[in-house]
Design a protein around this nucleic acid. Structure first.
Lengths: 335, 335
DNA sequence: TTGTAGGCGTTATCAC
DNA sequence: GTGATAACGCCTACAA
């Protein structure tokens, strides 16, 4: 075990534990010689400072809680990677909690992070239900929501969002420009606000192009592979099937692609498909997926930076505001 | 902030803080009535126990450190998901560290986890370099390696591995049975022990089938999409190109698939491809990938259970031993 | 059944 | 420069 504490070192060095603490903290209030001696000793004895004991007195844990629905979602994984990386560079560590989008687990996660005294929390792609929202506020630490919408934010709650509506318009405009008039939309998890905004962009693009919205062309999905897969049969079963589909995200689109292939539909000839996210696999499916790329790394990085800024009143200067980043259309071969 | 401590509750309840502590811990040494009163009060005051203060005295943090190369690797993400899930059910939380396979970051991660006093550490798919290995041992807590090989294990270090060699044989046998005689192998990250074992299975299968090994057919990869992509041109450039390829993992295979498509090679007609892992996307690429599935959830779960068992001498009973799980061949359309 | 006292490993504020 | 001493929030003998 890491049994050696600063007291042990003090004993071995014949000084008080306060001197050891100072020496280890490179305080100038310690004679250079003793400092060196103590540091050498600490090294030899295999000393490792107890981060939690320190945090008790410092009031900071150097820890950020990250709540995600599922780390197996490639989009989320990229975000978390960016978060971890950035946190590391700022000398913070990440406590991970997955919720499976189950309200019960979300609450448990918040309660856990609260007990673990994280300095801040980052939540990715949650529905952020009413209950959850309230608990997040009670947390009393900075909370940054990535791609999650809230009606009403706490004083300490901010968000990093991609401009979903703009993204939805990019995708739909692209299909319209290609000559499509019957364009379907497959939605994400129910009640998801990203979904709503992307859909709004879709509607807006259609409207601007003078195309009437056909409600039959909006199908429910779930943001996962199965969502797209299940949607295809319903799409082709329509009296007047669409010639193009815009999907809530890449996972949905990829599921759709597979279902299309099984029915021997040729994409994009029989059906053009556009996704959202630009996950790494998007360019590896066939045909390579046209999609709206989110700047995932930047989003994760900025979320961490926001938390850290919020934590440091000096840096803050009241200048914090929500971040909105722009996605960009990447045209590949599925459209 | 979560400023309220048991002392505050004590004051409000007109009892000592020890009584509060007991009441909150549901100790029977407290009159039922006072206990109820205190618990109600705690609730009202929004009390949340400080996990680290508690861990200071308990000597347990209820925390498991997880070190991965990159959470964006779908195989790793599945493992981490299983770890987090299982840890949650055992009332533990996960501290995540990503290393990018950089030795410097690996060391930093271990040092961090040491300071954070995690109860145990799980390492996934690392090369586990000599230095790293030594530091892991110094940790003084249970360490479980998932799919990582070590020459020499510390007293507290165990592993959960898929039977890589068996898996390699499954894949290669399958290709041989399909009539292939020139079968290539694209390797993983350099020095990776999984890679070596899978390759050993490959060699063994060839040998058993009386096929001479052609060293030209073994190409270097990196375990990522680019590894497979870069390998294809070299493969087809061979004087006598192979008719089938076994890849270190699915990522490699999927990269290869894409490169093949770009060159208008038909898989499996012109080239049969088999991967390893069975990541979720394996069945969504085209053609759907034949692969050797690893029981990812089970592996993550058992790693956590091992750590927990190691932690509890009562449970241990000296019966701990390394876990080896079997992969199974999943034949799809790429072979 | 409850309270007092000590200690877990730190840092910080005093004296000396 | 250095050493007591007191926190931080919690648990747990030991006393009462």
């Amino acid at each position: 075990m890491s049994r050696v504490s600063i007291k042990d070192i003090a004993r071995a060095a014949n000084v008080s534990h306060s001197t050891v603490s100072r020496a280890l903290g490179n305080s100038p209030l310690v004679r250079a010689e003793t400092r060196a001696r103590i540091q050498r000793l600490a090294q030899e004895m295999g000393y490792s400072p107890d981060a939690w004991a320190r945090s008790l007195v410092m009031g900071r844990t150097q820890t950020i809680g990250v709540v995600v629905t599922a780390i197996t979602d490639p989009f989320i994984a990229e975000i978390v990677q960016a978060i971890e990386q950035t946190a590391y560079h700022h000398d913070h560590t990440v406590i991970l909690a997955t919720s499976n989008a189950e309200p019960e687990r979300e609450l448990a996660a918040v309660e856990m992070l609260r007990s673990k005294r994280v300095d801040g929390v980052i939540v990715t792609s949650s529905r952020v239900g009413a209950l959850y929202q309230e608990h997040l506020d009670r947390l009393g630490v900075p909370v940054v929501l990535i791609n999650s919408h809230r009606q009403q934010r706490g004083p300490y709650t901010f968000s990093v969002n991609v401009d979903n509506q703009h993204g939805g318009r990019l995708a739909t405009d692209h299909l319209i420009r290609l000559g499509h008039r019957r364009i379907a939309y497959i939605s994400g998890p129910e009640g998801n606000s990203d979904d709503l905004a992307r859909q709004a962009g879709y509607r807006q693009a259609l409207s601007l192009a003078g195309i009437d919205l056909d409600p039959d062309l909006i199908l429910p999905g779930n943001g996962r592979l199965s969502g797209g897969e299940d949607a295809l049969p319903r799409l082709v079963g329509l009296a007047e099937p669409p010639t193009a589909v815009f999907c809530y995200n890449d996972m949905t689109a990829i599921g759709l692609l597979r279902a299309a292939r099984q029915r021997h539909l040729i994409v994009p000839r029989d059906l053009a498909v556009v996704g959202f996210d630009d996950i790494p696999f998007a360019s590896y499916v066939c045909p390579p997926l046209t999609t709206v790329a989110q700047p995932k790394f930047e989003m994760g990085r900025r979320a961490v930076e926001m938390v850290l800024t919020l934590l440091d009143p000096a840096l803050a200067g009241g200048s914090i505001s929500n971040v909105v980043v722009q996605g960009r259309l990447i045209v590949r071969e599925s459209s």
